[in-house]
Design a binder for these strands. Structure first.
Lengths: 257, 257
DNA sequence: CATCGGCGAGAACACTGTTCTCGCTCGATG
DNA sequence: CATCGAGCGAGAACAGTGTTCTCGCCGATG
């Protein structure tokens, strides 16, 4: 544990400030030219440095700078998603309703999608091809778990409320259960397999859909991407058991009644 | 319009052969060092050229070479997927059964996953962050449609056989229907909306799951990735209506009986 | 006040993609 | 078969890149 914040020295304050400036300039370059367009010399120029060599006092290299951007992007995305899931967040045209698990799921999906569309290059950084090496640096894994845990919590709350009713009865096979042991070990005891599978499935689908749209795989296929996205994630929520079980397919008649 | 294939001249034959050699060398570099590690000078060295400038006689630039690799990768993936879906393909431990739509869907999924794991950098090239510009070059779009069309055909055949029974009854809203018009226009008439949505959903999920695994987002989360993948895609197939509707959740009792 | 550690500048090295020019050579053609 | 020239590879050059190293300088610290 780092020492208590006993008032940083002036040098240290200047250092963290400069580190922040560097990351900001890099993020600007990222937003404009993409990850491949981030050049240390360009970053140095942006913040008034003549030579890029000074940057090495703050980051051991370009990859480390990228890693820092990845971690920040995960945090930014996590913030956006959690804000959408907060108990007092506005569910789409309607008052907040703590029992509307499907609506909250859809809201989180829209938040993730909106963040990705607003920051396509940052999204590509965290969910595109891993650029630097092949293994994600350790400091990026923790912020990267926020969205999946948020989604998992959504399903857990629905189950607590007795509102979780998946539309199939397919049991989780023994080998799939064993495959999930690493995750189950980090979760509170007593969570049934199928609930974990539901969370993973929802998480996987959400980022599949967002990636397809951001990376252009749906151009010329879907026109009004937002409308289609809304339908697909809502339907997935219903299939996975978050939804109103109404067989007529409509949303609940009354507003949260 | 290019002349009929009236026996290429020796020069032309040598040219296509050399073009193939260049792409092979580039693909080797891609497999080893990733897309960012493909250098024209390295490719030139690999095929016995002293200078990289000669490559510009065959490709207008690095991006064009990458584009060619993308198109080839799509074709390679399409081949693998279509082979798995072929009528005489072995369905997982069992004789081919033309009525086993769920088994065929799962087989296609495993084929896509296996190809991606065997060619991770090529997979990253086609389903990771778009590297060169932002819009996919036209010549890559056609081979890129083979897998989604294959999956769509799977659902269409299941519907023809009367075996398509989605587990929900959520109607496709009017705005989502309108969003699908670009795609519906390129499909035979009379295909119901929900069938198209099912195909898109299956396609989206498949590549979400494969991307998560290939890009390492499931490390430390899922152990036996193949077992979990098998379960998740099988379950999605059931939810989307390809599956045995048996409420006990098991596979059909007899083998294709 | 003296000193020493952290800092930025700048040169240097090994790369990269791309362009241009210059001979040469081999294949198409008369 | 002989000749001509189109197509080709080599090589230099330019503008970049990440990274390393050294050299002063300046200010915070003892």
């Amino acid at each position: 544990m780092p020492t208590a914040p006993r008032s940083l020295t002036a040098r240290e304050r200047a250092r963290v400030e400069f580190t922040r400036d560097i990351k900001e300039a890099a993020r600007r370059q990222l937003a404009e030219h993409g990850a491949a367009g981030i050049s240390l010399r360009g970053v140095a120029r942006d913040i008034g440095l003549v030579s890029a060599s000074a940057l090495y006092r703050y980051f051991p290299g370009r990859d480390a700078l990228l890693t820092a951007l990845i971690a920040d992007s995960y945090s930014s995305l996590g913030d956006a998603a959690e804000a959408a899931a907060a108990p007092d967040a506005e569910v789409q045209d309607g008052a907040p309703d703590p029992g509307d698990h499907l609506g909250r799921w859809v809201a989180v999906c829209h938040a993730v999608r909106a963040w990705a569309l607003a920051h396509p290059h940052e999204y590509a950084l965290i969910h595109g091809s891993p650029v630097p090496g092949y293994t994600a640096p350790a400091e990026t894994t923790e912020p990267g778990t926020r969205v999946p845990f948020l989604i998992g919590g959504l399903f857990a709350r629905a189950a607590q409320d007795g509102a979780y009713r998946p539309l199939d009865r397919l049991p989780v096979p023994a080998d799939a259960h064993r495959a999930l042991l690493p995750l189950l070990g980090r979760l509170p005891d007593g969570i049934p397999d199928h609930l974990v599978v539901a969370g993973l499935t929802a998480w996987t689908y959400l980022f599949g859909a967002v990636s397809f749209e951001v990376f252009g795989h749906r151009a010329n296929i879907v026109d009004d991407q937002r409308a289609y996205f809304d339908h697909e994630v809502r339907r997935l929520g219903v299939l996975l058991g978050l939804g109103p079980v109404a067989a007529d397919g409509g949303r609940p008649s009354g507003q949260g009644a």
